[in-house]
Design a protein around this nucleic acid. Structure first.
Length: 429
RNA sequence: GCCGCCGUAGCUCAGCUAGGUAGAGCGACGGGCUGUUAACCCGUGGGUCGUCGGUUCGAGUCCGACCGGCGGCGCCA
C-alpha cells in the first residue's frame, strides 16, 4: 500500500499508528548516535520525530541532511514513549528537496541579530504562532464589522494632503509631482459615508515619526471606521464592542497558541463592556492628585497614560480633550468650543490603541479650524465639499493592529506583531 | 530633535578598571557513542577586536571624531 500524504498534526490527531505515511517539511533538529539518526521534522501544523536506522535505505540521505533542509519522507507511524508527543515515524524513504547550508540561527542569539535575519526567524515557533494569531485577529475584525453592516472599502495609499501633522509625512516622487504616503485613511473614508453610511478598512498607514519606542512603527496596519448619523458616544460603544469581541474570540479560538506563547488569557476573558470612561479634565485631576506636574491644556505623555492605565488594569477611554492638542477635523462641543469630541482608548503598558471621535461637520467651523492649524484651504477643498453637499453628523476611529496584538499577546515590542517591521532604523529584510 | 547604553570568531559573550603574543561556550568540520530530547565525550579549523585618527617603545584596552544598532522622552495608533 502506498504511503498517504499527511500533515504532521494529523498524525497526532487521527491516530495513524501502524499506518504508512508521507510528510513534507523542514528539518527542525538533527541528532545522531551510532545506529540511529533522529530528525525532528516541522511543517505548518507541527513537529514530529522521525527515526532513521543504519540498515534503512534512507540512512545515506539522513546522514547528509542538514538543519532547515526541505525534505519529503515516508515511513511507518509508531507509538513510542521516548518520542516527543508520543509518536514517531520510522523512515524508510527520504528525499532531500533543498539541502540547506549551515543555518545561521542557533541557540544563542540576540534580539539585534534576529532582526538582521528576520526573514529566517519567521520560521521560528514563536513567530509562526504570532502570525497565526494575527491572521485570526484580522478575521475577527472583518467578522465584527460585517455583522454590524459596515462595508469594507479600499482607500488610496498615495495622498496629496496631510491628515495628521505634516511633519510626519513620507514624501515621494509621483511622476513629476511630490506626493505623500497616507498617514490615515480617515479623510477618504469620510467621503464614502455619504453613500455607504458605514464603512471600514484595514490598510497600512505610514508615519515618519522619529520615534524610538517599543510601540512605534513607520508602517503599521490601521483599522479605520467611519459612520454617518453617528455621535462620538455611539463610536465609543462600537470600539469597546470591537475590542471586547476580539479579546474574547482570541481567547477562545487561539487558546493553544496563547498557551504556548505564555500569554495571560485571563486578562482577555476579563475584558467587559462598558469600558471605564473619564474626561480629559478628570484625567488631569487624577494625575495632579498623584503628584504629576501637569496643567490643564497640556497633552498627556506616556508616563501619564501609563499611570492612569495602571489604575484601571483594563482598556479604558479618555475623552473631551482641549481643542488645541487635537487634530483640525475634530468637532468642538457646541456649548464649550475649547473642548473637542475626541476620544482615546488606552490599554496598560502599550498606551493608546485607538483614537476616535466626532468630525467637524459644519463648513464654516471646519474652515476656521484649518486656518487655526495653519493649513491651506485649497489643499482641502475636496474635504470641505463633503460639508457643502449634504453634510451629516459623523464619527469614526482608528485602531493600531500591532499595538492591539502587542497588548493581547504580551509582546515586548510591536515589531514582533508584524512579519517585516519598518522602523526609523530598520527596513531590511 | 534631546538623553542613555552597546559594537571582540557564523552566534552568545569574557578580556578594557590597572596598555605587553586574541580567549571560552555554542554552531561548523573530523572521530566516538545501541534511543536522542536545543544529547554527550575527544579533537580540528575559524579574528582587518565597527571605522578613521591621536597618545605610547607597544592599543581590543587610554583619548577624539565618525558610522551602525538598541532603549527612554517628545509625537502618535
Amino acid at each position: 500500500m502506498p504511503a498517504s500524504l499527511v500533515q504532521i498534526q494529523q498524525i497526532f490527531d487521527k491516530k495513524l499508528e501502524g499506518k504508512k505515511v508521507k510528510i513534507r517539511g523542514w528539518v527542525y533538529r538533527k541528532r545522531e548516535i551510532k545506529y540511529t539518526i533522529f530528525l525532528l521534522i516541522r511543517d505548518s501544523t507541527g513537529v514530529i520525530q522521525c527515526t532513521v536506522k543504519k540498515d534503512s535505505s534512507a540512512w545515506e540521505m539522513a546522514d547528509k541532511v542538514t538543519i532547515e533542509s526541505s525534505v519529503i519522507l515516508s515511513g511507518m507511524v509508531k507509538s513510542d514513549k521516548r518520542a516527543p508527543g508520543g509518536y514517531e515515524i520510522a523512515v524508510d524513504q527520504l528525499t532531500i528537496v533543498g539541502l540547506a547550508e549551515t543555518f545561521p540561527i542557533t541557540k544563542d542569539y540576540s534580539e539585534d541579530f534576529l532582526r538582521d535575519v528576520r526573514h529566517l526567524w519567521l520560521r521560528s515557533r514563536r513567530m509562526t504562532l504570532i502570525m497565526r494569531v494575527r491572521s485570526e485577529v484580522l478575521k475577527f475584525i472583518h467578522d465584527f464589522f460585517r455583522r454590524r453592516g459596515y462595508v469594507e472599502v479600499s482607500p488610496p495609499m498615495f495622498i496629496s494632503s496631510a491628515c495628521e501633522g505634516g511633519a510626519t509625512l513620507f514624501g515621494l516622487k509621483y511622476f513629476d509631482k511630490e506626493l505623500y504616503l497616507t498617514q490615515s485613511a480617515q479623510l477618504h473614508l469620510e467621503a464614502l459615508i455619504y453613500s455607504l453610511e458605514k464603512v471600514y478598512c484595514v490598510a497600512p498607514s505610514f508615519r515618519a515619526e522619529k520615534s524610538r519606542t517599543i510601540r512605534h512603527l513607520a508602517e503599521f496596519w490601521h483599522v479605520e471606521a467611519e459612520a454617518a448619523f453617528t455621535t462620538m458616544e455611539d463610536m465609543m460603544k462600537l470600539e469597546e464592542d470591537l475590542v471586547a469581541y476580539i479579546c474574547h474570540q482570541t481567547a477562545k479560538k487561539c487558546k493553544k497558541e496563547l498557551e504556548i506563547l505564555n500569554t495571560n488569557i485571563e486578562k482577555l476573558l476579563k475584558v467587559k463592556t462598558p469600558f471605564p470612561r473619564i474626561t480629559y479634565n478628570e484625567a488631569i485631576e487624577r494625575l495632579q492628585n498623584k503628584g504629576f506636574k501637569i496643567e490643564w491644556g497640556e497633552d498627556l505623555g506616556y508616563d501619564e497614560e501609563k499611570a492612569l492605565a495602571e489604575d484601571f488594569g483594563h482598556p479604558f477611554f479618555i475623552y473631551a480633550y482641549p481643542r488645541k492638542i487635537k487634530a483640525f477635523y475634530c468637532k468642538t462641543y457646541r456649548d464649550n468650543p475649547e473642548l473637542v469630541m475626541s476620544e482615546d482608548m488606552l490599554v496598560p503598558r502599550i498606551g493608546e490603541i485607538i483614537t476616535g471621535g466626532a468630525r467637524e461637520d459644519n463648513k464654516e467651523e471646519l474652515i476656521k479650524r484649518l486656518k487655526e492649524f495653519g493649513l491651506r484651504q485649497e489643499d482641502y477643498e475636496w474635504y470641505i465639499d463633503l460639508r457643502r453637499y449634504g453634510t451629516v453628523p459623523h464619527a469614526g476611529f482608528g485602531l493600531g493592529v500591532e499595538r492591539l496584538l502587542a497588548w493581547i499577546l504580551d509582546l515586548e515590542n510591536v515589531i514582533d506583531a508584524v512579519p517585516f517591521p519598518r522602523t526609523i532604523r530598520r527596513y531590511y529584510p
